[in-house]
Design a protein around this nucleic acid. Structure first.
Lengths: 221, 221
DNA sequence: GCAAAAGTGTTTGAGGTACACCCATGC
DNA sequence: GCATGGGTGTACCTCAAACACTTTTGC
């Protein structure tokens, strides 16, 4: 059942850069390829765009296949289409990036992958195709986005401490932030409110828990 | 000479949003389609991506075909791919936007167009496909970009007055800017330097001309 | 001389940055 | 009692915004 056209058509895929934070570490989800080319290498999850499927819908589908997550912060990063980025045929990929709280991830390797794993952004393996370039651009984009403080909320559970929130910023930016200044700024924005609860998790003063003041800010939970 | 594949492939195009400033007016280049679908309607210039052509190269080619310009500020905007955006077949478009000084434009209608014309962003015709959406997003992007003051230089000739530069900002943002604050800010950035020349063009004090201090800031001239 | 755009400084408020100590807890 | 992270305030500086008059020219 071949599909024929009057002139050559490229294949189009979506690839997704799925970021999360685990153990105070900024991580990305990679899959180990089980098929050629680049068999055995790590790569971004992704797949072909269905012929009647929007780009965004294809990204959602891949995200769900890989993680079980059906609601998340998901935005387009851009299209990458160097003619020789895939040795099989001309493949243009439209990339997305997602920010997901770690506890929502249920990793499952798709059929074309041996394994799905989270890698620290500080300790990445060699990547297939041009995925290192894509991942680099995604990281830059998130660094840029993080100073809309709503973005960091996407990576946290429904309730969190101010230290949790600060660590998200620090891990993404790769810098350290002054605690008093951070709290002053965040609280002045009036985006979050105390739940009234506390978290006690060690030999120190319990931390107040906060949540997003406006649920519309974190629509994906 | 048909091209066949095991599964359906979309067509991929590039479309370009070409902005310029003429007569103190922020304008966009549109072409009037000479073929179906949307025959007779105005649309963004664009065309199919060659099977061995990078996306960026395809954008350059279209830009040159349409305007004669072979060097310009050109950046990717994003991919648009709703399944029914083109009634003929599934077409995914990768969009770019360009900023070009008006005096460099030599408009020529491509073979698939009757005419190429500049339209004021304040007086746009109905557009074919989803091009109104694309153009809207491009305008937002440029508004965002313009506060990197290097960007406005792309729309001006090699030498220009501070009022010229201010008008570029005002027309793109659609707001008016305080003259003293604008000059203070721009000059503090140290991006431009006086040429020593003046321009006299009417019954008023002549204006000092400036140029980019670092030619690398305007590599496209 | 008059119309038209060029050119020029100061004040104010907001927000960012630097900086150090006490608090509540678990063991 | 001590180690651990939670929590708090002030001083300074930078930058954006508001605001009005003089200068130089063409006609």
């Amino acid at each position: 059942m071949p599909y024929t056209y009057d002139y050559p058509h490229p294949a189009v895929t979506v690839d997704i850069v799925i970021f999360t934070i685990v153990d105070d570490d900024f991580k990305v989800l990679l899959i180990q390829r089980d098929i050629k080319p680049f068999e055995g290498m790590w790569a971004l999850p992704g797949g072909f765009v269905g012929i009647d499927e929007s780009l965004r819908r294809a990204a959602w589908r891949e995200l769900k296949e890989e993680t079980g997550v059906h609601a998340a912060f998901l935005e387009q990063l851009g299209a990458f289409g160097h003619p020789d980025r895939d040795p099989r045929e001309r493949v243009i990929t439209v990339t997305y990036y997602a920010l997901i709280p770690a506890e929502r991830l249920k990793l499952k390797a798709a059929t074309d992958a041996r394994e799905a794993r989270l890698f620290s952004m500080k300790d990445l393996p060699a990547l297939a195709f041009d995925h290192a370039k894509i991942l680099g651009r995604a990281h830059l984009k998130v660094k840029d986005k993080i100073d809309e403080p709503i973005v960091a909320l996407q990576l946290l559970p429904a309730s969190f401490t101010l230290s949790d929130l600060q660590r998200v910023h620090e891990r993404i930016l790769g810098t350290s932030i002054d605690k008093r200044n951070f709290r002053k700024k965040i609280l002045a924005l009036d985006l979050i409110s105390p739940t009234g609860e506390e978290r006690r998790d060690g030999p120190h003063r319990p931390a107040k828990l906060y949540r997003a003041r406006d649920p519309a800010d974190v629509p994906y939970r």
